[in-house]
Design a protein around this nucleic acid. Structure first.
Length: 962
RNA sequence: GCCCGAGUGGCGAAAUGGCAGACGCGACGGACUCAAAAUCCGUUGCCUGGUAAGGGCGUGUGGGUUCGACUCCCACCUCGGGCACCA
């Protein structure tokens, strides 16, 4: 909106907004308005927190991208800022800060192509992002803005890694304990040491035994090798298509020795504690699915080459297990394969090995497999069953072998039909099942078109006549006649246990977490290898282990399809850094050792490491003695009552972190809790998923995207330079040419208008399309507010000290009441609508009387303050109010002004509104009925018919039923 | 395939068992202006009726519960997200 000569000097437009906003941003900074007092530690100001409740609100840790922000990024930040500012005005001590998750691939990729050090690039990006965010007027405590790449920060990331490294999971207690306690148990013989006694073991053997129990351990494991990125990836970072989450490069399975975190030890707690969290159900569900707990049984099938153990969730169908299927990679396959089958088995295994996981798991593929020639014994029937291998059985889940029950499992059914294997029913499906398949009820599976999965009466499920029972009838397993699956499972499990053939068991889909990355721009591990090639912690006094300087950041083997070459991490190039001397503490005794040659770990940590605990560092960012003072942590994150998990009061971010970040941080937090370093059991007590701002994009006839900003709409069609273009809808991005930046919004409207527009678009948790054209509405609103309080020509206040007329005063208090409740519930869109309504009422008053009553001006300014803090601060100052509006009390509605003597209620006839009647507020049923029936419009609608029933809801409505 | 979420004016949306469409955009009409922009005022779900009074229809589709359903239940359709041979 360019100014012209006729534009009043004090009109609230982008130019004036920019002045006001810069003024207040500078003032907040110099007055240190948003610095939040701590109860203890370096930032302690105990006097300031006395008698105030606390609130810790948190935005998901941003990566400082080189592209800068677009208008979609700040949505959550504005939301938390509005909420935090509102809570400050209701007396809370609010902790709100924003730091930077600044390690990671993009800066390193940039370094590879440009030769600019990742640190330089990262810092430039952070500076730009700080500038863009400062312009938004966020009430963040700047002292707490940490970056994961700061040595003062990653010193503690390394320290936490060592806490994990130096602990083990005690299954009996279900919690982590210091590794020294495990060593003590081994030494004393209280805990068995795999055959040889502790005393007889060599130091190397002892270290290995201990290492195998650590929560952070080295493992030769099948990993996701991504040559395109030159690194391995965690399972969670690989897409369903078998490609990298970042960069979309091919990913290959291969074995490598890697740092691994024993997150599976926490599977049950990670699952169970979800019930105590205030999170969206959908996110809880995604975590539950990811953890993938299934209850069932492990069952051993005897074979000449030893027992084959399977996991099944349906032990109750064991009588129907007519064959077994092993994964092609199963270690027993070689031994089991009969010579006649050798050739077929090898061919199948080779073929399976050359197929990617993604292809193997495509469900459109027909089932394939080969017979090994071997047989095993079904423990309940005593019968020999053939052993097959097939790639639909995965080595990575359960035991890598299954008992196939074709009558009760679709996959086994398909396999049995294809290879003509026997199918025996163990449950009689209900008649409805047969009816839905269009066949007559029969226990003969040859007539079945599919497996039956569900509750049905058990049949063919008794072994009191078979060899397996050894003739001991009373020891037999009899399921026939049972109708409930749970009962049948329980009986089978008991029988298996009594006969040493198996036991109830639980498995998880969750795998341990691969923690090594063959990169440069990450936290170095605080680990060296000793003379036994065993990992040893770098002593605390030598932390942080800083990243050595490099001139070339490129990892080796960058051909995306090169799955053979081993990764060589960039740090390996600094031989002088890798091979060093150090005084370490003995990993078994803890005693200080003499200076000796060691070799450094050359992998770095994944980007998740810093984001696993950053919220704890916000609490006490400058503490050099500990990662966070214990009293400070208890104050901000401690449990609120018995059974409360503790944690951040409100965590806002996108749903894309539902599994990765949120699961990893919960795991680290629980380890810290077990070791007594934090008082909270969970990092994030309440989670809120904000929606996304998306945008329209346009393509011309050739399919090329055209700049969305230059597209014109006419009659529901879209034109670019006169040519018709087609519209699509998607994420903001360079490729769609539909980016709108906050900077453009600041220039055109100002930060307050931008904030208001983002909050008014809809509920915070819903995604919506950006539409620059709509922003003007919020600017007009602020312009009207300004004009109601300030003369546009003279800049003088137009506020009167005269009494406010009652209708306007009532409108004010109705607005206060509604806005207060909407703010509390984070329904900022409806809060804004109520403020607009109030201002529209005020405008009518000003049109007739020429001035705004002071009481309305003050309260309106206060209510606007969380949403438009710059404008509100300016008006607050002009109104001559004391102190900073940031800490002024939010207005409180007078209940007396919310109720009226008479109310208008609708009268329905047969559910359709036909009239409205005005009645005293406390009118009772009889009075309402009489008033409604006496109404002329109602009489007309009744058309002479007499009411059959009259429903009266006092205070709400009357419904006359004819 | 399985699981979860969402479908309301031209558009963003509001109403969570009780007056459907608050509020904003856009559109249309008007004021100001030489004119335009900006700003201000008014109208605006659809159909019908005379540009009136009035009437009818209407929250993805079909059914159900209820005096009353955008809201609760069942089935289906469409879109979005997650998982995917998990034994």
């Amino acid at each position: 909106m360019p100014d012209s000569d006729s534009t009043p000097k004090y009109r609230y437009n982008a130019r004036l907004a920019a002045q006001i906003e810069a003024k207040w941003q500078d003032r907040w900074e110099s007055r240190r308005t948003f610095e939040t007092p701590n109860p203890a530690g370096p930032l302690a100001e105990p006097a300031k927190i006395a008698g105030r409740k606390k609130l810790f609100i948190l935005d998901m840790f941003p990566y400082p991208s080189g592209a800068g922000l677009h208008v979609g990024h700040p949505l959550g930040y504005i939301g938390t800022d509005v909420f935090g500012r509102f809570k400050r005005m209701t007396g809370f001590n609010v902790l709100h800060a924003l730091g930077y998750d600044s390690f990671g691939l993009p800066a390193e990729q940039h370094a590879i192509t440009t030769g600019v050090h990742p640190r330089e690039n990262t810092e430039a990006n952070i500076t730009n992002m700080r500038r863009q965010l400062r312009r938004l007027g966020l009430a963040h405590d700047a002292r707490r803005s940490v970056s994961t790449t700061d040595e003062a920060f990653y010193r503690w990331t390394q320290w936490i890694f060592l806490q994990v490294f130096n602990s083990w999971f005690d299954d009996e207690r279900g919690a982590a304990r210091p590794i020294s306690e495990l060593i003590a148990e081994f030494e004393s013989g209280r805990r068995p040491t795999n055959g040889t006694t502790w005393k007889k073991m060599s130091p190397r053997e002892r270290k290995q035994l201990v290492n195998d129990h650590r929560l952070a351990y080295l493992a030769d494991a099948p990993v996701n090798w991504c040559p395109g990125l030159g690194t391995i990836l965690a399972n969670e970072e690989v897409t369903a298509e078998g490609r990298s989450d970042i960069g979309n490069y091919p990913v290959f399975k291969r074995n490598m020795r890697q740092w691994t975190m024993r997150i599976t030890a926490y599977a049950d707690r990670l699952l169970d504690d979800l019930d105590r969290l205030d999170w969206p159900e959908s996110i809880k569900l995604m975590q539950r699915n990811w953890i993938g707990r299934s209850e069932g049984a492990r069952v051993r099938f005897a074979s000449p080459q030893g027992d084959i153990e399977v996991f099944t969730t349906r032990p109750d169908t064991l009588f129907g297990a007519t064959f077994m299927v092993l994964s092609p990679e199963h270690p027993l396959v070689d031994a089991l394969t009969m010579s006649a089958q050798q050739r077929a088995v090898s061919a199948y295994r080779a073929q399976a090995a050359s197929t990617t996981d993604a292809d193997r798991q495509s469900d459109t593929r027909e089932k394939t497999g080969v017979f090994t020639g071997a047989h095993a014994v079904n423990p309940v029937t005593g019968k020999q069953v053939p052993v097959w291998i097939a790639d639909y059985v995965l080595m990575g889940y359960g035991t890598g072998a299954i008992m196939a029950v074709p009558s009760g499992d679709e996959r086994d059914f398909a396999f049995a039909r294809k290879y003509d294997l026997p199918i025996v029913a163990t449950q009689m499906p209900p008649d409805a099942w047969f009816a839905s398949h269009g066949i007559a009820p029969s226990a003969d599976c040859t007539t079945w078109p599919a497996a039956f999965v569900g509750e049905g009466v058990y049949i063919n499920s008794r072994n009191d006549t078979s060899a397996a029972s050894g003739g001991r009838g009373s020891n037999a397993l009899v399921l026939d006649g049972i109708t409930e699956m749970a009962v049948a499972k329980q009986r089978t499990n008991a029988w298996l246990e009594a006969h040493g053939a198996g036991s109830a068991a639980i498995t998880y889909k969750l795998r341990d977490w691969l923690f090594s990355r063959q990169r440069y721009w990450g936290e170095p591990f605080p680990i060296v290898y000793d003379e036994d090639d065993m990992p040893v912690a770098v002593p605390d006094t030598l932390l942080p282990v800083t990243l050595p300087e490099l001139s070339d950041f490129k990892p080796q083997a960058l051909d995306p399809n090169d799955e053979v070459t081993d990764p060589i991490p960039p740090l390996a190039r600094r031989a002088d850094w890798v091979h060093t001397e150090m005084e370490v503490n003995d990993p078994l005794t803890g005693a200080k050792r003499a200076r000796a040659k060691v070799r450094r770990e050359i992998n770095v940590m994944p980007q998740w490491a810093g984001s696993c605990w950053y919220e704890l560092r916000y609490l006490d960012p400058t503490n050099t003695k500990t990662f966070s003072n214990a009293d400070v942590e208890r104050y901000w994150m401690g449990p609120q009552h018995d059974g409360h998990t503790g944690g951040v009061d409100l965590y806002v971010g996108g749903v894309e972190h539902a599994v990765l970040h949120l699961l990893y941080s919960r795991f680290w937090h629980k380890v810290l809790y077990d070791l007594g370093h934090v008082s909270s059991e969970e990092p994030f007590h309440r989670l809120f998923n904000q929606g996304y701002i998306q945008a329209y994009a346009y393509r011309d006839a050739r399919g090329q995207t055209v700049p969305a900003a230059d597209v014109q709409d006419r009659d529901g069609k879209h034109f670019y330079k006169g040519e018709a273009v087609s519209r699509e809808y998607g994420k903001m991005g360079k490729s769609l040419k539909n980016i709108v930046t906050p900077d453009e919004m600041y220039d055109e409207f100002g930060a307050d208008t931008f904030r208001l527009y983002e909050m008014s678009m809809g509920p915070l948790d819903q995604s919506r399309p950006w539409n620059t054209r709509d922003v003007i509405g919020m600017q007009r609103f602020l312009q009207r507010v300004w004009r109601n309080l300030v003369d546009e020509d003279s800049g003088e206040l137009t506020v009167s000290e005269t009494e406010c007329p009652e209708p306007l005063l009532r409108a004010l208090h109705v607005a206060i009441d509604g806005v207060q409740r909407d703010m509390e519930g984070m329904r900022f869109n409806t809060a804004i609508a109520k403020l607009i309504e109030l201002n529209n009422a005020l405008t009518k008053h000003v049109e007739s009387s020429g001035a705004t009553p002071r009481v309305v001006a003050v309260a309106l300014t206060q209510m606007l303050s969380p949403l438009c803090p710059h404008l509100a601060s300016e008006l607050w100052e002009r109104l001559g109010c004391e102190g900073e509006i940031t800490y002024a009390q939010f207005p409180v509605a007078d209940p007396k002004l919310l109720v009226t003597d008479t109310i208008e209620i609708p009268v329905q006839v047969n559910g359709k509104v036909r009239s409205r009647i005005t009645v005293p507020r406390e009118a009772n049923q009889d009075a309402l009925r009489a008033a409604a029936l006496a109404d002329a419009a109602v009489a007309k609608a009744l058309d002479g018919k007499s009411p059959r029933n009259v429903v009266v809801v006092p205070g709400r409505l009357v419904n006359v039923v004819v």
